[in-house]
Amino acid sequence: MAVSSQAARPITGRFVLVTTVAFFAVVISVNMVMMRLAITTLPGTEVDSAYSASLAYQREIDAARQQNERDWRVRAHIDRRPDGSAAIALEARDHAGAPLTGLSFLARLERPIDHRADRAIEITEAEGGSYSGRAEGVAAGQWDLVIEGDADGGRMFLSKNRIQLN
């Protein structure tokens, strides 16, 4: 029967120091990588100052009340094409059903969780209350379609709807 004549290696202070330093180096390295990934993928804050947003809240309430009193009907239809572009068509009518002309519409496709992917859509008036626009580089998935209508130097219409583009 063969017996190993090698003696077990003793644990020295140097060995403990090296393994402790190596352990913490690995932990710190992993933490640094995770922090870097978290910081670079953070989409940011919704508002920069909650206080400023709260001051503007009353103006938003008044604008919504005025919009309801105007009783405008704005219908939107958006299609995403296979090349990644999206076409939007708007039809704007007043409370009596007459076409709304001369308005300046702006549309935005906003990602619900990452505003870095937002796309602005320039809207042009076609005829008789019809407006259209196009955006490039629109990925499939959930979006918020935000439509703003301006006239007389102020916002007259605001709509925000969650949509699914395929």
Rank of each mutant, 00 (worst) to 15 (best):
Q164C: 04
T45F: 08
R81A: 13
D144A: 06
H95D: 06
F15C: 07
L90N: 02
A38W: 07
G44V: 05
P82K: 11
A76W: 14
E110W: 06
V146Y: 01
V26I: 15
R36I: 12
A22S: 09
N166M: 10
R9K: 14
N166W: 02
D144H: 10
G154C: 03
Q6S: 13
M35L: 15
Q6D: 10
R116P: 03
S85G: 05
A120E: 12
N68V: 02
Q6I: 12
Q164E: 15
G44I: 03
E127G: 05
I163E: 03
G13Q: 10
H95E: 11
Q66W: 10
T12A: 10
V27P: 06
T101D: 13
V3E: 14
S52G: 00
D71E: 11
R162L: 15
R59W: 09
E91M: 14
V138Q: 01
S85V: 03
A63Y: 03
F24H: 02
L109V: 05
A151S: 12
A64D: 08
N68T: 02
E125T: 08
A151D: 08
A22M: 12
M1F: 12
E122L: 11
R70Q: 08
R73T: 15
R36M: 13
V21Q: 01
A86T: 04
V138F: 01
D150Y: 13
L17Q: 06
A76H: 09
V16K: 15
A140K: 02
E91F: 14
S5V: 13
G141L: 04
R81W: 08
Y51G: 06
H77A: 13
Q67W: 06
I163Y: 01
P112T: 09
R119V: 03
T45H: 09
A64M: 11
T101S: 08
E69Q: 13
P82E: 12
I78Q: 03
E110G: 05
W72M: 07
D94Q: 03
N68D: 09
S49K: 03
D62C: 03
T41W: 00
G154M: 12
A64W: 09
L103D: 04
G154W: 07
M32Q: 14
A92G: 02
I28K: 03
T41V: 05
L103C: 04
V16G: 02
T12M: 07
D48R: 13
R9N: 10
A38Y: 07
Y57K: 14
A89N: 09
I113E: 05
V138N: 01
S49V: 00
D83P: 01
A107R: 06
S132D: 04
R75G: 08
G84V: 04
G13L: 14
L145S: 00
I121F: 08
A2T: 14
P43V: 06
